[in-house]
């Protein structure tokens, strides 16, 4: 699959490539980088915001955002840890994102857990498209949302707080609800697609 997929290019120097193959845009806002773990081969695109500085109220070092391999955070997407009052004090809780998770542009994610092979915001991983992508934002407004492995959150979905998204489900709407089931082959499909997108995400030197 994907025999005709075009290269996704960025201008050389606009992305920082790490030893483990992560590609992080220089224009992405990454705060509290020491609290963020990227598993490798993940792409953080321009304008994405990762709030690693919002850590637990208790003293000490805490991982705030952990992300697996072959993930993608789209343009303008905000990932921040969920927080709530606990025993009289406000505290943040970590965000765990597994492998093969694609979060489209302009999403707001405050989930507690996102399982492997989850796609958030369909169609929004077309990097070259200029217009129309802003309407495709997905809002996981809810804090502490748990998304299990293999799920699709359609563009523009709003998922309320503490919702559980089961495996193999498709969600849509405001408030989001289950609108369908994924085919049994979805795991292979999504893993192949995530790898392909990473491999096609290449630097070019502008002439």
């Amino acid at each position: 699959m994907g025999a005709f997929d075009p290269l996704i290019t960025y201008e050389k120097g606009t992305y920082i490539e790490t030893d483990t193959g992560n590609k992080v845009s220089r224009k992405a806002v990454v705060t509290g980088a020491q609290n963020i773990i990227l598993g490798g081969k993940s792409v953080i695109q321009t304008g994405a915001i990762l709030r690693g500085d919002l850590q637990r109220a208790q003293a000490g070092h805490h991982v705030v955002i952990s992300m697996g391999r072959y993930c993608l955070v789209g343009e303008g997407t905000v990932i921040r840890p969920p927080g709530k009052m606990y025993k009289g004090a406000f505290t943040f809780y970590p965000v765990k994102i597994s492998d093969f998770v694609h979060i489209g542009p302009n999403c707001i994610v405050e989930a507690a857990q996102i399982g492997g092979g989850v796609e958030i915001g369909e169609g929004s991983i077309i990097f070259s498209s200029v217009s129309g992508s802003s309407a495709k934002g997905v809002m996981i407004r809810g804090k502490f949302v748990i998304i299990k492995d293999l799920a699709v959150i359609r563009p523009g979905t709003v998922i309320p707080e503490a919702t559980v998204v089961p495996s193999m489900s498709i969600w849509e709407g405001n408030p989001g609800r289950i609108v369908g089931t994924l085919p049994e082959t979805y795991q292979d499909t999504v893993e192949a697609r995530c790898k392909s997108i990473y491999q096609r995400f290449r630097a070019v030197t502008s002439t």
Binding site: M1, A3, F4, D149, L150, S167, E184, T185, Q187, D188
Partner: peptide, 25 residues
């Protein structure tokens, strides 16, 4: 299906047998 995970115990899908056809360019 496996009741514990998303894996399938038996998965006989056409994608493993038939060539995938795509149109493009």
């Amino acid at each position: 299906p496996d009741s514990k995970s998303t894996r399938m115990k038996i998965k006989m899908v056409a994608a493993n047998y038939l060539p995938a056809v795509e149109i493009g360019r």
